[in-house]
Amino acid sequence: MNKAEIRAIYLQELSRIAPDIEPETVGDNDHIQEDLELDSMDVLNLVTALHERTGVDIPETDYPRIATVALAVEYLKGAMQ
């Protein structure tokens, strides 16, 4: 899986959890809680979806590392290798 594919999965799952978010409007450094207003249940659902799609079991202590598109792509790419 390359970075563009990871990015697409992340944005797809993000807009499935929050249908009002349009993927093309999400900035690389938008924070999912501070900027996109996800709550703790939304974050857990995003982590669950990313785990299902990429196989990466993101532990709670790593949640800050998927908090933006840019961070998540790097983190997931690294974890999948």
Partner: peptide
């Protein structure tokens, strides 16, 4: 796994 985690 994330699907079995519990929130406060």
């Amino acid at each position: 796994p994330p699907g079995e985690r519990v929130l406060l």
